[in-house]
């Protein structure tokens, strides 16, 4: 099968790859590079577990061709923080009991980050936060503690993170 060369910037690191044109960013992250923080489920942009940041904005990596990311910056959950140095959102999700099975959580946290950066400079309302995460399904939590966690970070940081 044909492979085309592609350089991707992922979590600040440049990756020189050979990709098949139909490979999605999610496939490349999980199977080629070995970053499994972006999760796999519906593959049709309905569940949001595959969410990553593309030029700072939350996108579904399952329906984005890797080739569409040429020259753009990709951040996955692995690029946000580590166990030793958690991002404020990661810390808040733990503190507020927002994590159960955790499979949607990387996508939730990145969606929240993108949204808070978008509303930077003001504190979004709880309803706005509720709306902002509506593209990411969580089956465990009923969303309430996730919203608590995001609202707490929003209040601490005035939006942007």
């Amino acid at each position: 099968m044909t492979r085309v060369p592609l350089t991707l910037s992922i979590n600040g690191e440049m990756h020189e790859l050979l990709v098949a044109p139909h490979w999605t960013l999610l496939y490349v992250l999980r199977t080629v590079i070995g970053l499994s923080g972006a999760k796999e489920n519906c593959l049709e942009a309905e569940c949001g577990v595959c969410t990553v940041l593309l030029d700072g904005k939350a996108v579904n990596s399952c329906i984005l061709l890797a080739e569409q990311c040429r020259g753009r910056s990709i951040v996955t959950i692995e690029g946000l923080g580590t166990s030793g140095q958690l991002h404020p959102l990661q810390e808040a999700f733990i503190r507020h009991g927002a994590v159960q099975c955790g499979y949607c959580i990387p996508g939730m946290i990145l969606t929240a980050k993108s949204f808070l950066d978008e509303t930077s400079g003001r504190v979004p309302t709880r309803d706005e936060i509720r709306e902002a995460i509506s593209g990411t399904l969580c089956r465990c939590t009923g969303y309430q503690k996730i919203i608590d966690a995001i609202a707490a970070v929003a209040a601490e940081t005035k939006g942007g993170t």
Binding site: A45, T51, A58, N60, T111, G135
Partner: peptide, 9 residues
């Protein structure tokens, strides 16, 4: 239209 992720692209 969809969620924020879809509206972003």
């Amino acid at each position: 239209v969809g969620g924020h992720q879809v509206r972003n692209v």
